[in-house]
Structures are given as structure tokens and as C-alpha cells.
Design a protein around this nucleic acid. Structure first.
Lengths: 123, 123
DNA sequence: TAGGAACCTGACGTTGACGTCAGAGGTAGC
DNA sequence: GCTACCTCTGACGTCAACGTCAGGTTCCTA
């Protein structure tokens, strides 16, 4: 498929896909005229990339770990990095759960006082 | 306390604290000479701000919700925003848990193949 | 074969949360 | 009062992950 189709299938913009290629994260065959062509696997790869980005992992780190992710093979160094990222993801989750508790306590109090008719001071 | 002490107590840079003030998130008394002075509550407030930032909430949104967070009082509009942020935080947590599963499966495979002596292809 | 949609390569713009530097003034211990 | 650090304002720099625009080429359908 061409880049537009990959874009609609993944929900990732064409510009972003070209950016992934720039960063070495996503390879593409080229037609004679230079247009990019992708296989079906590209869809999963793009989703994986997005997932890693969402975990706050930089493109440089993703670049390091991607071959290992796809081949299932990793050097001790990469293994250590993966473990480091794992624990950072765990910490992110814990922090967010903390934030959730904060938001919930705020919401509980706010709903109560709103029911009692007290308005919010303007920002 | 002065800004340096607040910085070391919270682990947030002096520059960031001044930035919070610029954004209206953190107020400070001023001495005759213009130096900032903070009360003890500032430590908690800074931590709260950091927590909200970590949840991907922008300074503009934090600015809107902070008075309500501190007073426990919110207008219906702010309430709706808070609920919106809450569900976005929930989604972030779910996504991260997904990522965690991915990383774990990668790690499981990688450890196995590393034990079997297969090296990682160089990045 | 025409023409509009999709694609190409640069290259500059954007956004948020700060980093960093300069030059000047404030503070505190000895 | 000296000195070493702390703080001030103002302003430009940074970084990542794209957005956007320009000017040109390619593809596909009628």
C-alpha cells in the first residue's frame, strides 16, 4: 500500500509516517518513481511505534529497541534499557494513579459544594 | 523561604518556579528588594502542579482548576473539564498498561533468546 | 488524454516547559 | 566591610514530534 492508505489505516498522519522513516523507525520499499510502498506488517509496526511514543520513549530509544522487539533478540545492553523503560512505565502508571486519586478527591468535594449552591471563583 | 530553598525542597528548578509564577500558578510574596518569599504550603502546591503536568494537563487548564482544587469549589464548566481530564488520565493508564504488556512480552522473548546465546543485531 | 487526487522533497513554523546567559543588585557569615 | 553565593529581570535557545506551505511529479479514472 502507499503512504496515504497506511495513514488512514493507522490514523497516523502522512507527515508523521515520513518522520518515522527519517528517524529510521519505519522502512519502505520505493517504486521506480520514488513513491513509498508498505507491506501489511507496517500497520502493526506503526501502532507499536505509537505505543512506545505514548510511553514517553524517545525515537532514539525506540530505534535501539525496535530490531530486538521484532526479532525477539536483545543484547544485555538493550535488555537493560528495556528494563529501565519498563520501570519508568511502571512509575508513570503509579504517578497517574496518584493523580487520579487527587482528581477524584477534588471532584468529590467540588460536586458536593456545587450541590450546596456555592459558585466557583472565576479564574 | 526563598526560591532556592523551595527549589531544593521540591526538586523543581528555580527557572521552573518562576515559570509557574508567570503562568499564574504559583504566587509569592515579595520582599522590599523584590525577592520572592514562599510559605510552607508552596511545597505542596508545587508538587500538585507537577503532578498535574505529569498527567499531561496544560498550564492553562491547571490555572482554571487550581482555585477549585484549593477551595474545593467548582462551577459546572470546570467540573466538566475535571471529568474530562479524569477520563483522559484513565485512558493514559490503560494505554501504559498495554505498553507494559508489550514490553513484558518483548522482555520474555529477549531474555530467552539471550540465554540461548543469540546476539542482538547492532542498531 | 485530461485533470484532479495523491505523492515527492525540502524547508521553515509551532508548541510547551523549561535551559541558559548576561548584567546588575541583594544577603549572610566571618 | 569583604566575599561568596543567591536572586532579579529580560531575552534568546532548545528539543521532539510533528504541521504546513511551496513547487513540482506521479497515479488513476473517466
Amino acid at each position: 500500500m502507499r503512504i496515504g492508505e497506511l495513514s488512514t489505516k493507522t490514523g497516523v498522519s502522512v507527515r508523521a509516517l515520513r518522520y518515522y522513516e527519517e528517524q529510521g523507525l519505519l522502512a519502505a520499499e520505493r517504486s521506480e518513481s520514488g513513491q513509498r510502498h508498505y507491506g501489511d506488517k507496517a500497520v502493526d509496526r506503526v501502532r507499536l511505534i505509537q505505543q512506545l511514543y505514548a510511553a514517553g520513549i524517545s525515537s532514539a530509544s525506540i530505534l535501539e529497541m525496535l530490531p530486538c522487539v521484532t526479532t525477539g533478540v536483545a543484547s544485555p545492553q538493550v535488555l537493560a534499557k528495556l528494563r529501565g523503560h519498563r520501570s519508568s512505565v511502571v512509575k508513570q502508571i503509579e504517578d497517574l494513579q496518584d493523580t487520579l486519586r487527587q482528581l477524584d478527591s477534588v471532584l468529590a468535594g467540588a460536586v458536593k459544594s456545587h450541590e450546596s449552591g456555592v459558585p466557583c471563583p472565576p479564574a
